[in-house]
Simulated assay, not measured.
Amino acid sequence: MFKRNTLWMVLAAIALVTGGVCTAFAQGESSQKQQSLYERLGGLAPISVVVSDFIDALMPDAFLNANPAIDAARKRVPAPYLKYHVTAMVCQAAGGPCQYHGRGMKASHAHLNITEREWERMVTIFKEVLAKHRVPAKETQELLDIVRSTKADIVASQGGR
């Protein structure tokens, strides 16, 4: 989804529909440097696809589900609900127009007793999904920085499973 050609075709189509083709091409590279992460990722549609793939990869992960609290939460919380909230959170954190209205990271993860190793497994899966979608290195790093900013509120134990 994040392939450069696909991304540019989507942006060109949006510009064409909104009548901004001349302006978009006239600003060229200089405007790209000023774009938010949300804009550089292509907006809500590509973000939602990546989040959907990420959740789909997390849900059945045997290592993560070995934690009984995570496994129970996976069975209790429907994937579409989780995808909705994570998409809104990423959209907002990336500078987009979405508003996250879910619980805070600490409140929503405290009961899961997430370990450092489980956190690292989640980060590995996230990186794999970003690579699959060919998210550029700069944007990948910015997304990882956003994710890492939540670690203190999510990881409850330095121990391992």
Rank of each mutant, 00 (worst) to 15 (best):
S48C: 11
H85W: 03
S149M: 08
R40M: 07
T124V: 04
P136T: 11
P46M: 06
N67Y: 06
N5A: 10
G96P: 03
L112A: 05
T124D: 13
T18L: 15
H101Y: 00
F25H: 06
A88K: 08
C98H: 00
P60F: 12
R4F: 03
R103K: 15
I55N: 05
R121M: 06
K132G: 05
V155E: 07
L41E: 09
P60K: 08
G104Y: 03
A57D: 07
R4M: 02
S108G: 14
I125H: 10
P68K: 09
V90P: 02
I114S: 02
T150N: 05
G42V: 13
T115N: 13
K132N: 02
T23N: 10
D61A: 07
I14P: 00
F126P: 01
F63T: 15
P136Q: 14
F126I: 00
K3N: 12
A66T: 10
C98A: 13
K151L: 03
H85A: 00
A26D: 14
T140N: 08
Q34I: 00
D61Q: 04
A152N: 13
T18A: 12
K3M: 05
S149D: 14
I125N: 14
Q99C: 01
I55L: 12
E116G: 02
H85S: 00
F25D: 00
T115V: 06
D53R: 14
M9W: 10
R148G: 05
V123D: 05
K127C: 08
C91E: 09
S31C: 07
A26L: 10
S48Y: 03
S157E: 06
F25T: 06
Q158N: 12
A110E: 13
M1V: 13
C98G: 04
K127L: 12
S36E: 05
I125M: 11
C98Y: 00
L44Y: 15
L130A: 11
L16Y: 11
